[in-house]
Design a binder for these strands. Sequence first.
DNA 1: AGAGGACATGTGCCTAGGGACATGTGAAGA
DNA 2: TCTTCACATGTCCCTAGGCACATGTCCTCT
Lengths: 185, 185
Amino acid sequence: MSLRHGLLGLLAEGPASGYDLTQHFQTALGTVWPAQHPKIYAELTRLAEDGLIEVESLGPRGRKAYRITGSGLVEIRRWLAEEPVDHTLRQEPLLRAFFFWLMTPEQLDAHLRQEAAFFSAAAEQLRSFAAAKDRGEFGSAPPTQSVRIAIEAGIRLYGALAEWAEWARDAPPVLPERPGAEIID
Amino acid sequence: MSLRHGLLGLLAEGPASGYDLTQHFQTALGTVWPAQHPKIYAELTRLAEDGLIEVESLGPRGRKAYRITGSGLVEIRRWLAEEPVDHTLRQEPLLRAFFFWLMTPEQLDAHLRQEAAFFSAAAEQLRSFAAAKDRGEFGSAPPTQSVRIAIEAGIRLYGALAEWAEWARDAPPVLPERPGAEIID
DNA sequence: AGAGGACATGTGCCTAGGGACATGTGAAGA
DNA sequence: TCTTCACATGTCCCTAGGCACATGTCCTCT
């Protein structure tokens, strides 16, 4: 139930509407924790029922902004400090790697080339974002500094994956035997 | 629905029972794609209904081993070659990083120290596993070579996260202001 | 005046996944 | 003989998440 704490954390920065929060989850936070608006609105309702957030203001076009409450702040801090961290690397590119031997050498090389290109580009994009932050373009409030730290993790992870994909391309080519190869050959 | 393809990929190596597959998902594959036995048995039934796998043999204690079929092999290869890769870094440690500014400097330092220790240990464990593979202790069949490549990704990712956590500890300490700090202070 | 697009919030359905509960077998050792 | 443990397979329920569908408003530009 990390969406709950993601929303709570964002609201700790200041009041926001479901729409605002959806934007956050489609940009920076979205690469790490994707969430669509239906889930967000539903979770906000639940958080309000539980008294962790409350309606701050009503605006035009039905806009409803929420504000975090005292118990909400206590809860997000409790989560950060006490809840055990989930360390699983739940990444599809890694799952696929276990089955590379089922691809032809040509398919595998093309795949790894694409992956390397994607990961390099993603790392590069984050790097330029980080550079903008370091130039002070987004101020230096504590939340901004935390975003900078999170982005650094993204840079390093995507960078590591890009290098891995290149390494794998050069690794001793697999496949002396391929059971069932007749099916596609 | 990656569990489906994970099972298919494992069965491409040779026949196995739900119990065998559960073991796989609790060790190597499990760090990347956790799955419990109820899900695995259910998915095997569905895969068999769809003709992608079939019962290979019945053994003692109700053991039921499955074998991949021709269409199963076609499907796993189609998935590997054609399905777009999901690149999201869905990692809780990263989500938490966005909210580091809500922790006290002491909490944050302790947290990052623990994270660095965990990631280093995880990387080290994978490194020694990889070394054993490189010594040929598990043979050199194609599936083993793919596992080696997947492990390399794990080593690099955990290594990158360990270095990141150390970097973050040394990063300019945050928190001149902490809204709501009175709640816990 | 009308059209298009960004703003804004929801419902409903289906699948995936986690965890508790339930049951039974075969082998090894005390 | 009895106990314990690894082997082995499943059901059930609840929550999380993805996606399609539905609705309405305000502003800007033509």
